[in-house]
């Protein structure tokens, strides 16, 4: 039957088109990064040695990786990225949880409005939002002016180009990623459960730790990972707010690539960053897969 053949063709096409696209433009590039991370930098176009010498013998080495290990610069920037990403995640959770809770417990009419206000900054350019903080935080910026005017300080505080400024920028940019999944799981939470716990003698705090917190765990995990993973590789925020010397792994990669034109080393940095992120990424996908299948 030609019609059934058509239908089968359509099914195949609908699967194959996105599948092939991702194979070519998402998966294949990783193989290439891996290959180039094993090459040597040379002065040519493109600036890396071929995987096989002209006589056909393979010329790959782990030289870039051993260089990464030998120079403290890289270890320090990986470590700094992890610490900053973890601190950002914690701050986002501390601010995001009560906000998500408050939104979920608002009357239905205001709830959507509050939620919209969380999402709205997301539609405004990320770069411009970080830029907005530059205007607030610099030595002649609004915050210093305000503090000077009130008389709390005599000379401008150096906020700009510190880790503190970077942290503010990170929390500001990723807060919605924390609030949304938390809101989703808190909104589903039946408030009768909390009242039942209180009815059975739990204090408000006790009821929170016994009921709300465990039931919001899925949202908490998703939110934390959604903040931690992109914060690890962040480039723009540390550059603009943390100043030129702020060593973040995303920046190191960017600079190795664009300033030093050392493509093999940049690839090796990317491979190690990816390896650090494999565990959280897999965790996140698991959490989301579990969320998709509603509990029976």
């Amino acid at each position: 039957m030609s019609n059934d053949a058509n239908n089968e063709l359509w099914r195949r096409f609908a699967i194959a088109a996105p599948y092939l696209w991702l194979l070519v433009f998402f998966l294949a590039p990783f193989a290439i990064i891996l290959k180039i991370s094993l090459a040597d930098p040379i002065l040519a176009q493109p600036p890396y040695s071929p995987a096989f010498a002209s006589d056909g013998t393979p010329s790959m080495s782990l030289g870039n990786y051993s260089f990464l290990l030998s120079d403290d610069l890289y270890a320090i920037s990986y470590l700094r990225s992890v610490t900053m990403a973890a601190a950002t995640t914690l701050l986002c959770l501390l601010l995001g949880f009560p906000m998500a809770y408050g939104i979920a417990r608002s009357p239905a009419a205001t709830r959507n409005m509050l939620l919209l206000l969380v999402v709205l900054p997301f539609w405004i350019s990320f770069l411009l939002r970080v830029y907005a903080w530059m205007g607030l935080l610099n030595n002649h910026g609004a915050i210093n002016n305000l503090l000077l005017w009130v008389g709390l300080i005599d000379a401008p505080l150096q906020i700009m180009y510190t880790d503190f400024a970077t942290a503010i920028g990170l929390v500001y940019s990723y807060l919605p990623f924390m609030i949304l999944p938390l809101y989703a799981s808190l909104e589903r939470l039946d408030m009768d459960l909390v009242e039942a716990a209180q009815d059975l003698g739990a204090s408000r705090t006790r009821a929170f730790w016994d009921i709300t917190w465990p039931l919001a765990k899925a949202g908490t995990i998703a939110g934390c990972l959604l903040v931690f993973i992109p914060a690890m590789g962040e480039y723009v925020i540390p550059y603009l707010l943390g100043g030129p010397d702020s060593l973040f792994i995303g920046r190191v990669l960017f600079d190795e690539f664009f300033l030093n034109r050392d493509w093999p080393l940049a690839s090796a940095v990317a491979i190690i960053l990816l390896m650090l992120l494999v565990v959280p990424i897999v965790l996140l996908q698991r959490a989301q897969a579990r969320d998709e299948e509603p509990a029976a």
């Binding site: 699967i15 996105p18 599948y19 991702l22 194979l23 070519v24 433009f25 998402f26 998966l27 294949a28 590039p29 990783f30 290439i32 990064i33 180039i36 493109p46 990972l225 959604l226 993973i229 992109p230 690890m232 590789g233 962040e234 480039y235 995303g250 990669l253 960017f254 690539f257 493509w263 940049a266 690839s267 990317a270 960053l273 990816l274 992120l277 990424i281 996140l284 996908q285 989301q288």
Partner: peptide, 29 residues
């Protein structure tokens, strides 16, 4: 397939950018 679909969402931009550039350079060669 489903793993590959959602991965680009969580991949740090620097990695996606670098990997695609290297792909384009290789394809060009």
């Amino acid at each position: 397939f489903s793993g590959m679909i959602s991965s680009p969402m969580v991949m740090p931009e620097v990695i996606t950018g670098l990997s695609l550039l290297l792909l384009f350079v290789t394809l060009q060669q």
